[in-house]
Design a protein around this nucleic acid. Structure first.
Lengths: 358, 358
DNA sequence: CCGAAACGTGAGAGCGCTCTCACAATCAGC
DNA sequence: GCTGATTGTGAGAGCGCTCTCACGTTTCGG
């Protein structure tokens, strides 16, 4: 008879799955104590070689796997790390940033035998719940991505003593470890590339001013202008929201303000694609009349006509680095702040290269 | 002095984080027994209203959060669910399928108070490790996506008694619960749309023959031809690998075989975009000479010129449904096989609509 | 108004593990 | 050969929780 409690779960204790031995059983088979088996399992050096071998054989024959819950209970470690992705919209779906980042994180954590717990709050209520969950010590550390400027989560977690590593420079200079790509250098390089090809009136479609990527890529654009000896003009700067349509709108306003522009650097490929559509609709040839550079080197960049020159970021690497920093910080138990900035790379395609005439 | 064991972790037991009360403390504050607090926490009906209220007040004042490890240890439940994403390449990065799916899964699990453990094996060794991990009872159930035909994982897990729900119809008709979108109906609808606009020589760029999505969308294409009274011609069918370049190559061979074709249905937006580039390069006008339909309704579809008519899939919904099926199956403890197929929707854009002349 | 059933609560065991401590055996130094 | 350190091992406590069982109290039919 199935009696259920308030949760609708069966009340009777399920039996341990067959084949799942306990430390106790391994100890009996190996003819040693539980403590010794535990030492073997945890790689303690204080075990004699022959005993170790006997235990390993017993483990093998019983297919023993440690019970994480029991271990967690006593060590007060969960050996799991949360990845929090709070993305209202846009970037989450418009390019493969998150899958790549997750892949990098996952690869690094798997190698260190840590679970990856994914948290994707959608509403403010979700975020509250997530914060409570993360603060409750259910995970050993937290990886945060795409903070919006006023995000209190990292502060809260740090205050609770939960190790945190952020992906992307936090905008308000919070005292927290982070890994970022060198967005500023990427922007600078993009503009240098355009200037080297003779472009003199280089516009930019910047990302939102309240996101570090938006700010940094714009700063890089300005650096690039300065380096090339070109004048900055507010009429050459438009802001959009990283989306295709936003990019198209921004392009329209740039064309209104400066019909003479001969290049555009967009802070995302989606925006660059939108700008490209708009340029072609306005009768400009790309790259002959206007060269276009995107950012992210996403699949969109290869799919447009002409394909887009774009700034590639080492996203998997960023994920790996985040995981590495976090696990090290957990292991050491210290809370030193570390910052890692990874280099970008410009990928050249037809949107900036005028074919030689012959 | 920091003494560390073989793991390089601090040996001394960390103190429980301040503010993290135990059941015991709550019981003391509320003036009841541990068992009663447990009942309140677990929504047992057998608690009198006044006692319940007292306990809830104590929980509130102490900021009590149950320790999952301790609970898991006794219930033999982890209240966590693994999501396994095994994607050699391509789909993981070419469209936002996985982020959306994860979002759907995450939303559903959060509402049911379950953790989402993400597993992304990259190598065969990773997969072995993942299989061992998942079989060891560390999670209550497993959500699998994008199986390659010969994947033994679902069988293994089922044999171990681990509940499994698969995303996407398994190709070999495995006896396993799954959620899929109606790829066949989507293909049929795409072709019907083209036929209704007077297209008579409709080609298709199919996905790989060893993936259910490839097979089903092609079957839908054939259904559509039959329904429209059009003849099937092997020269109108090309196979590609879901990528942009693959789509372009397939388009080239289709144009060679049937230069008279007036429409193409591609089984992914990336392939449709590749086909589009190729068509334009070959001097065909889209949609005037050749109409193009993609699949997935990904950002690529909106970014091409002209934008692509495409088949939209309810991906978040699919994730939610997968999570729902899994959690229900865990809760009931039964292993009945369930199948859910979700409807698609055709999103019409300029690649199939010739503007009326005036 | 009595006995039985239903209800609300507490005591206590024990989930599987790690870690401290105690102790026996071995080793080194003189 | 004795003392003292070092090493390998086991006994045992206890992490925080859930669940069974026992028991006192209320409810209710006859």
């Amino acid at each position: 008879m199935a009696i259920t409690n308030g949760n609708g779960r069966a009340r009777t204790l399920p039996k341990r799955a067959p084949g799942l031995a306990t430390l106790e059983e391994v100890a009996r088979v190996a003819g040693v104590s539980r403590a010794t088996v535990s030492r073997v399992v945890n790689d303690s050096p204080r075990v004699s070689p022959d005993v170790r071998q006997a235990v390993e054989r017993a483990i093998e024959s019983l297919g023993y796997v440690p019970n994480r819950a029991a271990r967690s209970l006593v060590t007060r470690r969960s050996d799991s790390v949360a990845v929090v992705i709070t993305e209202p919209t846009g970037r989450l779906f418009s390019d493969p940033f998150f899958p790549r980042l997750l892949r990098g994180i996952s690869a690094e954590l798997a190698g260190r035998d840590r679970q990856l717990v994914l948290v994707m709050p959608e509403s403010a209520a979700d975020e509250r719940r997530a914060a409570a969950y993360l603060s409750a010590g259910h995970v050993d550390g937290v990886l945060l991505t795409s903070l919006h400027g006023d995000d209190a989560l990292p502060r809260e977690l740090l205050a609770r003593g939960v190790p945190v590593v952020v992906g992307g420079r936090p905008i308000h200079g919070e005292q927290v470890s982070y890994v970022d790509v060198d967005n500023r250098a990427g922007g600078r390089e993009a503009v240098a590339h355009l200037a080297a090809r003779g472009r003199r009136t280089i516009a930019t479609i910047a990302g939102p001013h309240d996101m570090a990527v938006g700010i940094d890529r714009l700063a890089g654009y300005r650096d690039g202008l300065t380096a090339a000896g070109l004048a900055a003009d507010p009429g050459l700067v438009a802001e959009a929201d990283f989306t295709h349509d936003g990019g198209a709108r921004a392009m329209r306003s740039l064309l209104d303000a400066r019909p003479d522009l001969d290049a555009v650097f967009a802070a995302s490929d989606a925006m660059a694609a939108g700008a490209l559509s708009e340029l072609l609709a306005a009768g400009r040839r790309v790259p002959e009349d206007v060269a276009v550079v995107g950012y992210d080197d996403s699949p969109i960049a290869a799919a447009t006509r002409p394909p887009l020159t774009s700034v590639r970021q080492p996203i998997e690497e960023m994920g790996r680095e985040m995981a590495r920093l976090l696990v090290e910080s957990i292991g050491r138990g210290e809370r030193a702040i570390r910052r890692v900035v990874l280099a970008t790379e410009l990928v050249t395609r037809a949107s900036t290269e005028v074919k030689a005439r012959h």
